[in-house]
């Protein structure tokens, strides 16, 4: 089933894209990661121009995060105040990110930047995932792993504009969440990812939020930022391909639901470790391609 994409201006196999997005959705449902960081490079690998892949991926992230957020909200696992604060930073950051994106698109350097950022973040994600699953596997063997006590004071308390976050039990400055949201927003716009993979660890280790509200709260930020990025990309770069988005959304949400259901029955930590190795492999491949002399020195800009 070949489908001609109106914005990418190329035919793709609809079934292949559907299966891939379902597979990525499945993995993200299983591991709790968004999946944008797998799907976007895969689309690029399939020959879809990087700008179209990044811009379109934002709309798929919007869809998957809505369905995740609804599930978390039902269980009251969302710190709305913190989420909205992160989102404010995120919206500012993504606006900035989209303007960087369109500048680099015009300068012809967007592919290099996207690749470099992917190398960097895939390595970080891979390392984090491997570390966490390793710790969890080790902890599983021991009787009780006592969590480190949360300190009542952090360095952030010295900053001004303190605010109370009852759901998270925090009383901290609004500046760190705003800055964190901003940084993740920039990445979301440039890389076509949701950014939960950076946001979630940062919320736990930097903001010291309780783990149970982290997923729901980060989903709120991801949702708002992805929706804004979709809108900005459509308005500024005009690279959102709605036909591609529709296929990605259908495949992604179905895959995510199946993954979430099966996740309970599968050895999650081993899967995370396996995924971490795949992620490392992808980072190494991208880096290798950037470092080795190309077979042919000339390239054509996509028209």
């Amino acid at each position: 089933m070949s489908i001609y994409l109106p914005i990418a201006e190329m035919p793709v196999s609809g079934l292949l894209v559907l299966l891939l997005s379902a597979l990525v959705g499945f993995v993200s449902g299983l591991t709790g990661l968004g999946g944008g960081f797998i799907m976007t490079p895969m689309l690029i690998f399939m020959g879809i121009p990087a700008p179209v892949a990044v811009a379109t991926q934002a709309s798929q992230i919007t869809a998957t995060s809505v369905s995740g957020l609804l599930a978390q909200a039902r269980r009251r696992m969302v710190d709305w105040r913190m989420g909205l604060l992160l989102s404010t930073g995120g919206v500012l950051g993504s606006t900035f990110g989209v303007s960087i994106f369109s500048t680099l698109l015009a300068a012809g350097q967007i592919d290099i930047l996207i690749t470099l950022l992917y190398v960097l973040f895939l390595t970080v994600i891979g390392a984090l995932m491997l570390f966490e699953s390793f710790m969890a596997m080790r902890a599983a063997g021991k009787p009780i792993a006592r969590p480190a006590p949360r300190p009542s004071y952090t360095a952030f308390n010295k900053l001004p504009f303190l605010m109370r976050f009852p759901r998270s039990g925090l009383y901290i400055s609004v500046l760190p969440p705003l800055a964190l949201g901003f940084g993740v927003g920039v990445l979301a716009a440039i890389m076509g990812v949701g950014g939960a993979f950076i946001l979630a660890p940062a919320m736990i280790y930097l903001l010291r939020m309780p783990t149970n509200v982290v997923i729901g709260t980060s989903l709120l930020q991801v949702l708002i930022v992805a929706a804004v990025v979709t809108l900005l990309q459509a308005t500024i770069t005009q690279k959102v391909d709605m036909l591609l988005a529709a296929i990605l959304i259908v495949g992604g949400v179905i895959g995510a639901q199946l993954g979430a259901r099966l996740g309970a029955r599968l050895p999650g930590e081993q899967l995370r470790a396996a995924l971490a190795i795949v992620v490392f492999g992808a980072a190494a491949k991208l880096l290798w391609d950037l470092l080795t002399p190309p077979a042919y020195l000339y390239v054509l800009d996509p028209s």
Binding site: I7, S59, S65, S67, L70, A227, A234, Q238, D241, I249
Partner: peptide, 30 residues
């Protein structure tokens, strides 16, 4: 033609549509 024309001439409106499609899709699946 519809998608291409909308995307190139009515970018903002097209963006709103894309967001609605995503929100609707996510909500429906949930």
């Amino acid at each position: 033609r519809t998608i291409h024309d909308l995307a190139t001439t009515q970018g903002f409106f097209y963006g709103i549509l894309a967001v609605m499609l995503a929100l609707g899709g996510g909500w429906a699946s949930a």
